[in-house]
Design a protein around this nucleic acid. Structure first.
Length: 499
RNA sequence: GCGUCUGUAGCUCAGUAGGUAGAGCACUCCCCUUUUAAGGGAUAGGUCGCGCGUUCGAAUCGCGCCAGACGCACCA
């Protein structure tokens, strides 16, 4: 039977934590701050590994460095420590011959996970490991929590996402992914800077969330007592800047927010790039898109031939171009151009088993058929061009077919990675397109676009002919890092609270 | 939102027709001074995701809930 004075259960994590707090106190008792302010690091692990790659086994130098990083392994009672910094690993060799006896005792207070600085001379051990022969060291941060086990590491995906800092400490692959992500974005900026693009910022908090078909997050500004929404696209503000003419080429890289489901390719907040170029059309945008992606791949991976899962994808320009109608005919044998209205299109779609229940226009049927019958097959990069008018409210009518627009979406690996138009610049036409969207919204289409009156007013001042393109950065990073889910390329993906 | 699967020590995983939980790593102590997942020895560590139920007895069976993965739906 249970005693009244039953013990609180103490988990091993509490015991470990308490032990480490005690070690920190022991350091303080010796006059050592376990959380000091600064360390003079003179070399990174990688620099040393490269500089001394030809140092022979067993060879010693008197080249002195200070290194710093996290202790990730301790062997032989502290005589060997693996120290990891952001560049890589280096072994620390602490022998009693080289370190003051009192100092050496402090090594007992070191745990895996602590941040340490070591000063010593470069040598390569007889077993071939480049090492710092330590003469002195300093505790830079005492850690309180144990790291995951060294061999299997951290594999639990939920923990990887919720505690990305642990994932990054443990998994080299995760570190590589986020380094590559940064490099990809840097190379995009470089590519656009070379072409005279101006990087700008536009509002994230907006009173009208438009420019895409999506449900926004809503919030409230207290001082203004005003409901606001988070942006779902960059489009309409960037076009205002084209109207203003601050630059004929502008772009923005930034977060957008869509209040929708989460899956392997969607996170509620995600990073987009949109760019606009005056006096250009969608043909120019196709060229720019493929050159930009190829440039980034070449710079980051050294090649434009990449592997994603089972697929070999060749990003070398020029990329294939297919009209949307033509692609559908290619894969289904049906020519939807021959349908002159919704009813005929629905009938034709039914003959190939496509559900059109949600479709209320010829264009939407085309979209549904395309998505189901064509999209999954488009592994190699291809620009799908000339989208139906009804589903493209921000694109100019096609110069040679009034039912279509000058719009393309670029598909790679079956995903949409870019969406681009010859931008609609006629304010009267734009208003009518928005009104058609408003009607759809009134009829229950929650994702239909909002009318943005100020944007239309901007167009009334006159926007030059403009080509524009938007691309999901996260998906590009997925492709170039061979990541199976978007959560692998977003450092802190959206997760439900644990209760 | 629907379906399938998953949740056991800090981490990686076992687990018995239902009988009250185990390993390796990490932690603590001892031995060991040229290791590479170092080694040897001895400890300690658990509301078995949460709750309710069935039962003499539940990590195990049932129901509900929470979280996650995948698929579908939604969405570019």
């Amino acid at each position: 039977m249970q005693e009244n004075n039953k013990q609180e259960s103490v988990s091993s994590i509490d015991i470990i934590r308490e032990g480490r707090i005690n070690k920190a106190q022991e350091l303080r008792d010796k006059g050592i701050n376990p959380y000091p302010y600064k360390f003079n690091k003179t070399a990174s692990a990688k620099e040393l590994q490269e500089k001394y790659k030809d140092l022979k086994e067993g060879e010693e130098t008197t080249d002195r460095y200070s290194v710093a990083g996290r202790v990730i392994a301790i062997r032989n009672s502290g005589m060997f420590i693996d120290l990891m910094d952001d560049s890589g690993k280096i072994q620390i060799f602490s022998h009693k011959q080289n370190i003051d006896a009192e100092k050496l005792k402090l090594l007992k207070l070191i745990d895996i996970g602590d941040i340490m600085g070591f000063i010593g001379d470069i040598r390569r051990t007889p077993r071939g490991e480049l090492s710092i022969k330590a003469v002195d060291f300093e505790v830079l941060t005492k850690s309180l929590k144990p790291l995951p086990e060294k061999f299997h590491g951290l594999t639990d995906v939920e923990t990887k996402y919720r505690k990305r800092y642990v994932d990054l400490i443990i998994n080299e692959e995760t570190r590589q992914t986020f380094k590559k992500r940064s490099l990809i974005i840097q190379k995009i900026r470089e590519f656009l800077a070379q072409r005279g693009y101006l990087e700008v910022d536009t509002p994230i908090l907006q009173t009208v969330a438009s420019g895409a078909n999506a449900r926004p997050f809503t919030t409230h500004h207290n001082a203004l007592d005003m409901d606001m929404t988070m942006r779902i696209a960059l489009e309409l503000y960037l076009k205002r800047l084209i109207v203003g003419g601050v630059s004929e080429k502008v772009y923005e890289i930034g977060k957008c927010f869509r209040n929708e489901g989460i899956d392997t390719r969607h996170n509620p907040e995600f990073t987009m790039i949109e760019l606009y170029q005056a006096y250009a059309d969608y043909n120019d945008m196709m060229e720019l898109t493929e050159n930009m992606v190829a440039y980034v791949a070449k710079e980051v991976l050294g090649t434009t031939k990449i592997k994603y899962g089972e697929n070999e994808i060749d990003l070398t320009p020029p990329w294939d171009r297919k009209t949307m109608i033509g692609a559908i005919e290619e894969y289904t044998g049906k020519d939807f151009m021959s349908c002159s209205n919704l009813e005929e299109a629905v009938k034709m779609a039914e003959t190939i088993g496509v559900n059109t229940a949600e479709c209320s226009s010829w264009g939407q049927v085309i979209d549904a058929v395309f998505e189901e019958k064509v999209e999954p097959s488009l592994i190699q990069p291809v620009h799908i061009i000339d989208y139906p008018l009804e589903i493209s409210p921000l694109a100019k009518v096609h110069r040679s077919n009034k039912r279509l627009t000058e719009r393309f979406e670029t598909r790679v690996n079956g995903w949409e990675i870019a969406n681009a138009f010859s931008e609609l610049t006629d304010p009267i036409d734009q208003r009518q397109r928005f009104e058609a969207q408003a009607l759809a919204k009134a009829n229950g289409d929650e994702e239909a676009m909002e009318i943005d009156d100020d944007f239309i007013e901007a167009l009334e001042y006159g926007m030059p002919p403009t080509g524009g393109m938007g691309m999901g950065i996260d998906r590009l990073v997925m492709l170039l890092t061979n990541s199976p889910t978007i959560r692998d390329v977003i450092a802190f993906p959206t997760m439900k609270n644990k209760q």
